[in-house]
Design a protein around this nucleic acid. Structure first.
Lengths: 118, 118
DNA sequence: TGCTAATATTAGCAGCTGCTAATATAGCGC
DNA sequence: GCGCTATATTAGCAGCTGCTAATATTAGCA
């Protein structure tokens, strides 16, 4: 606020304690994860990849997601650089699989959403 | 890709199985959560609120976050509508606290980041 | 080698997002 | 009621994001 922050108000109406610092690299790491998943196309792609037992190929994600091939590739590239999917080549095909990080986060999302449904 | 998707390639080189459908409201719910947290200011605000035992007031979040009062208010409003913080009034002051949903997600983020640090 | 198929990358566009400044609203004491 | 403080809301701007279309790259085959 100005210089009259209630934190040090002498009337005993001090507002509350000093806030903590959040480490910059923690912020960057977590925000990269969260924002990578925080988009419809990328979230759906991740869900689809997560539900496959042996990886999903770009060629079938595209019809499922209903966007262009380029958009699918960009989505997967973003998920990969955030550490949410791994990829491998098999001839012409590229397969994507979820990482343990993604599994954990998706499970947590399912838990908290399930709790709301009661 | 076009109509010759490897999914049904008769040569046995079928690419993989059919992808699942992801429920639209599940997508909307989760993406709202993730994108609310997927921004530096809002993530840091949530972290600060999470570290306080009895709620944090807007007036101290503002200096901690280093943005305008209006930006703090907007950030908290977004977190609130995503169900990540609850709020209460005490006279002139507005206090924000984390919800169990936020706690779960932040804990999971800490877990997966901790795993990476090894 | 030349072609097709799969997919990554790039360029560009329209809409979105996050911020500031200004304003509106709520609470408090005189 | 007035003036102040705390904070929510609004308007507007600059930069960002997600998409398509086009192109580049890679793999496979005759």
């Amino acid at each position: 606020m100005n210089s009259q922050t209630p934190v040090t108000d002498e009337t005993g109406e001090a507002c509350c304690s000093m806030p903590v610092d959040v480490a910059e690299d923690t912020v960057a790491t977590d925000v990269a994860l969260l924002s990578a998943m925080g988009n419809d196309t990328r979230y759906e792609a991740l869900r689809i990849v997560a539900s496959a037992s042996d990886g999903v190929c770009v060629c079938e994600l595209q019809p499922a997601l209903g966007v262009s091939q380029g958009a699918v590739s960009q989505a997967l590239s973003r998920l990969h650089s955030a550490g949410l999917v791994s990829r491998r080549k098999e001839g012409r095909w590229r397969y994507y699989s979820v990482t343990p990080v993604a599994v954990r986060l998706l499970d947590t999302l399912d838990d908290v959403r399930g709790g709301d449904d009661e």
